Amino acid sequence: MSRIEDDVQTSFLNDLLGDREIVWIFLVNGIKLTGYLEAFDQYVVSLQSPTGTQAVFKSAISTVCRPHTTPNKTTDERSSTVRIERPARRHVAISR
């Protein structure tokens, strides 16, 4: 990892550490962890969750972010979409 990338990562994690807000950590296998960032070093992030403290290897982390929500659009706010009818599928028998 280059020095510039390390500075960006360290700065971001320090901000999350100082804020003491809940964070989401998404792992490369798709699992989402939720908790408070307690500490981090070059290889590991320590996450405090209701089930206890978890040490998560940085190599297993895909994304770290603050929790967020997306507003649900009502029917009136959705853009109108044009529905395109597809032609019926033809089944072709293949002889061998």
Rank of each mutant, 00 (worst) to 15 (best):
I31S: 04
F40S: 01
F12S: 05
C65V: 09
I61D: 02
E77S: 06
L13T: 02
Q54G: 06
T70W: 06
A93P: 03
I31L: 04
N14H: 09
T74H: 03
A93E: 13
S62E: 15
D19L: 09
R90Y: 12
S11C: 12
C65P: 06
A60L: 15
A88D: 05
V45N: 00
C65Y: 08
T74I: 05
N29R: 01
L13A: 03
L47E: 01
T81E: 11
V64L: 05
V45L: 07
N72L: 10
Q9I: 09
W24G: 03
S79C: 10
L16V: 02
V23S: 01
N72A: 06
L13I: 01
I4Y: 11
A93I: 07
N29I: 03
A60I: 12
T81W: 04
L37H: 00
E85D: 12
E5D: 13
L13N: 00
T63Y: 11
K58T: 02
L17F: 01
D19S: 10
R20L: 11
V44Y: 01
R96K: 10
D7V: 09
E5Q: 15
K32Q: 04
Y43M: 11
E38L: 11
P67G: 07
N72H: 13
E5F: 10
R89I: 15
D15W: 05
T81K: 05
C65Q: 08
L16Q: 02
Y43L: 12
R78S: 14
N29D: 08
D76P: 05
K32C: 03
R20P: 04
T63N: 12
A60T: 15
N14D: 13
I22P: 00
R78V: 08
Q54I: 10
S2G: 12
D6L: 14
S2F: 04
T81C: 05
S95C: 13
H68M: 13
T69D: 13
N14M: 10
A60N: 15
Q9M: 10
F12W: 08
V44P: 02
T63R: 12
A39S: 15
R83M: 08
I61T: 03
Q42K: 08
T53P: 04
R20N: 10
V28Y: 05
V44A: 04
S95R: 14
R66N: 03
I84A: 12
I61G: 03
T69I: 11
Y36R: 01
T10Q: 06
G35P: 00
T70Q: 13
V56W: 01
S79Y: 11
G35A: 00
A39N: 13
I25V: 03
V45F: 02
V8Q: 12
R89E: 11
D7Q: 11
N29H: 07
R78Q: 13
S11H: 13
S62R: 07
D41T: 02
S2V: 05
R86I: 09
F26I: 13
R83Y: 05
R3T: 12
L16T: 01
D15P: 02
T70V: 10
A93G: 10
R96E: 15
I84C: 14
I4A: 15
E5C: 08
D19I: 05
P71T: 06
R96G: 12
